[in-house]
Computed example of a mutant assay.
Amino acid sequence: MCRSIKTLRPPYTEAVTEEDVRAAALQYVRKVSGFRHPAAHNAAAFERAVDEVTAATEELLASLSVRGGTAPRKP
């Protein structure tokens, strides 16, 4: 699923931007919902989902520690 979403943790990616995290969240929500661009009546729910997935992803990445001593990072 979502093959276009890249891995956002070290050692795969060292410099992750907020835009990277949001783009991954958008791809995920598009895949799950089946909408590339939701209709007006679904737009608020779609954007809220992207915001929530973005926040969850940032929290996850900040909490991960990679074997080899890499400390958790702050998004």
Score class of each variant (00 low, 15 high):
Arg48Met: 06
Ala55Phe: 03
Glu19Leu: 10
Gly34Val: 10
Asn42Pro: 01
Val50Thr: 03
Met1Asn: 10
Leu60Asp: 09
Asp51Ala: 11
Pro11Cys: 03
Arg3Pro: 11
Ser4Ile: 12
Pro10Asn: 03
Ala56Arg: 10
Val16Thr: 07
His41Gly: 01
Val32Trp: 06
Phe46Pro: 01
Gly69Tyr: 03
Pro72Phe: 08
Arg3Val: 13
Glu47Trp: 02
Ser63His: 07
Ser4Cys: 13
Ala55Pro: 00
Lys31Ile: 01
Val50Lys: 02
Glu47Cys: 03
Arg22His: 10
Val29Tyr: 05
Pro11Asp: 00
Ile5Trp: 02
Val21Tyr: 01
Leu26Ala: 08
Ile5Pro: 08
Ala56Thr: 03
Ala23Pro: 03
Leu26Val: 05
Ala56Pro: 00
Ala55Thr: 04
Ala49Glu: 07
Lys31Glu: 15
Leu60Ser: 11
Ala71Ser: 14
Ser33Asp: 05
Gln27Leu: 15
Asn42Glu: 13
Ala39Glu: 14
Pro75Ser: 10
Cys2His: 10
Ala23Leu: 08
Val21Gly: 05
Lys6Ala: 07
Pro75Asp: 08
Thr13Gln: 09
Ile5Met: 14
His37Gln: 14
Thr17His: 08
Arg36His: 12
Glu19His: 09
Lys6Cys: 08
Glu52Arg: 09
Pro10Lys: 10
Ser33Met: 06
Arg9Tyr: 13
Thr13Val: 05
Leu61Arg: 09
Tyr12Cys: 04
Thr7Tyr: 01
Pro11Asn: 00
Ser33Cys: 09
Val50Pro: 01
Ala24Leu: 02
Cys2Ile: 14
Leu64Ser: 04
Thr13Pro: 00
Pro75Ala: 14
Pro10Leu: 11
Val50Cys: 04
Thr13Ile: 02
Thr13Gly: 01
Ala43Pro: 04
Thr70Arg: 14
Arg30Leu: 03
Ser4Val: 13
Gly34Asn: 05
Ala24Trp: 00
Glu14Leu: 07
Leu60Tyr: 12
Phe46Asn: 03
Ala23Val: 04
Pro11Ala: 00
Ala43Tyr: 08
Gln27Phe: 05
Leu61Cys: 03
Lys74Glu: 12
Thr70Asp: 10
Phe35Arg: 14
Arg3Glu: 15
Arg67Phe: 09
Thr17Ser: 15
Arg67Asp: 12
Ala55Asn: 02
Tyr28His: 13
Ala71Cys: 01
Ala49Pro: 02
Pro38Tyr: 03
Lys31His: 15
Arg36Tyr: 11
Asp20Gln: 05
Thr7Val: 12
Leu64Pro: 06
Val50Tyr: 01
Tyr28Phe: 15
Glu59Phe: 04
Asp20Val: 06
